[in-house]
Design a protein around this nucleic acid. Structure first.
Length: 271
DNA sequence: CAGAATACCTGCGGGC
DNA sequence: TGCCCGCAGGTATTCT
């Protein structure tokens, strides 16, 4: 479900409801997600007000004066706002209840997601410290990309999805960006010419911006914080279209696996 | 060391 | 109808 646009959509959806609100109660219905949930630490946040809601890569950061809650949605995680307590479903693992009656509910069938706690600078947390640049920032530029890819022999698609290089790009948007840029996903990262890097940068920024504008993609089960689907999946040009004609040249789109992830591309348009 | 494979988990759709 | 297989938006860990 969540790559950068879906996480950003989630952030924008929940922020107005939780910023400046005071945590009244935390409800944990299981002890583990991807890692143990630090329930004892998190309970210390009762009485604290949410001072900021931010995103770093695919992580969401809910800050208080005392500490930051670090949230990752994994593969199937979702956050939504409820205006009153409701019966918890099988996969509704955590509720953060605010003193205005609203609550933030974390749902995650596959439990690859994570809920962490940091009293120190969250950006120095082991999971966030190594993250690469934000793709929509000015730091994601040709000079940076050239430098980070210059001795990478792996497939450009794998490099584009490497969160240590650039954050937020997952399987869907890497696939789409490479199609838009006309670059073969298996091409060795270090062999891209400057002109390729420029097209890839432009394509990546563009696809992410457009996906955010449309409220994220909704392939199977992505629902935003209001429980509504994103509409960007209708705009996807190659992802999940293997065997169908290329929108540009009508060639049949090919499907391969790169780094254990399904990858669709046009053999005619991408080199 | 880089890069590839594996592991974590549930749900769904397709083939039989 | 039901069982088995492969696959799904991510990434830390283990391997070669």
């Amino acid at each position: 479900m969540p790559e950068l646009p879906e996480v950003e959509t989630t952030l924008r959806g929940i922020q107005p409801f939780i910023q400046h609100q005071v945590i009244a109660q935390l409800v944990f219905r299981r002890a583990n997600l991807r890692w143990p949930i630090p329930t004892t630490d998190l309970q210390r946040l009762v009485g604290q007000s949410i001072t900021a809601v931010k995103r770093r890569g695919k992580y969401l950061l809910l800050s208080t004066d005392l500490a930051t809650i670090i949230i990752h949605l994994g593969m199937s995680g979702r956050l939504r706002i409820l205006d009153k307590p409701a019966i918890a479903d099988k996969h509704d693992h955590v509720d953060i209840i605010f003193d205005n009656g609203y609550l933030l509910r974390f749902t995650d069938p596959r439990r690859f997601g994570a809920l962490l706690y940091s009293e120190a600078d969250p950006y120095q947390h082991p999971l966030l410290k190594q993250l690469g640049v934000e793709p929509l920032s000015r730091q994601f530029c040709v000079d940076y990309l050239k430098r980070r890819l210059q001795d990478k022999r792996l497939a450009i698609k794998s490099a584009l999805m490497d969160q240590c290089i650039v954050v937020g790009v997952g399987n869907i948007y890497a696939t789409e960006a490479l199609f838009i840029a006309g670059i073969h996903p298996l091409k060795s990262a270090r062999t891209l010419a400057l002109v390729d890097l420029k097209r890839l940068l432009k394509a990546t920024k563009s696809i992410l911006r457009r996906a955010i504008w449309h409220g994220g993609s909704s392939l199977k089960d992505f629902l935003n914080s209001e429980g509504k689907p994103g509409y960007f999946s209708q705009k996807l040009q190659v992802y999940a279209r293997a065997g169908l004609p290329c929108v540009r040249c009508k060639s049949i789109l090919a499907s391969i696996r790169i780094g254990q992830r399904s990858t669709v591309y046009c053999p005619h348009c991408q080199h």
